[in-house]
Amino acid sequence: MLKHRVIPCLLLRNGGLVKTTKFRDPKYVGDPLNAIRIFNEKEVDELIVLDIECSRVGREPDYALIEEFAGECFMPLAYGGGVSKVEQAKELFARGVEKLCIQTAALADLSLIRQIADRFGSQSIVVSVDIKKSLLGGARHYSAARQRTLAGSWTEFIRAAADAGAGEILLNAVDRDGTLSGMDVEIIREATAACSVPIIAAGGAATLAHMRAAVDAGASAVAAGAMFVFHGPHRAVLITYPRYHDLISALDR
């Protein structure tokens, strides 16, 4: 039986690991390579590393650093941040990344997704979609790089992204990011109804019960940051990951 994946999602900023709250206030949490080694030892299902600055400031991915990450990952590694050309994708795959996570370039034009999928396969492309709730509670499509909500239907966007060749959608609930307050099952339900590719739900997970709620809403995988890097009420940095049998009994039974 296919397991529901549980994926630590690590944020990179100036070569260091940070954790945000609602996409703001990045707090330094340590050396990324060290964290990745620990996650590898804990046999995590997969790892996502997102450079949260590249697209914002128009910088190239840090290829050498990403190659070092890939060398420590004996599980799939997805990288996101600053990818807007097929040549960059080729370079990253050659350095050992399995998947690219693309948001900013996909918002501008889905043809990049089509080109990468045609050449490297749909399984190598994750389109990242950020959702922010408006004051009235409506779910709005959000651009992390431009830090503003976007016009247009986000469910139509993910359908178009899947049609263009995206193999997965990373669905981020911006308002839940770093809050450890539980996941937004409503948008997960809408996303899984809108397209047939796997949905990776992110934002708000603190417990396996939160993750179970996301899976029950249709998510194929759950990503989390704060849950795996913080410990206790004072948010001390501690890298953790649930044990395999705990994951199975919480999510797959």
Partner: peptide, 11 residues
């Protein structure tokens, strides 16, 4: 139709 494609993950 009820399967998500790609088949993606641990099995």
């Amino acid at each position: 139709p009820d399967l998500r494609v790609p088949h993606m993950g641990w099995n």
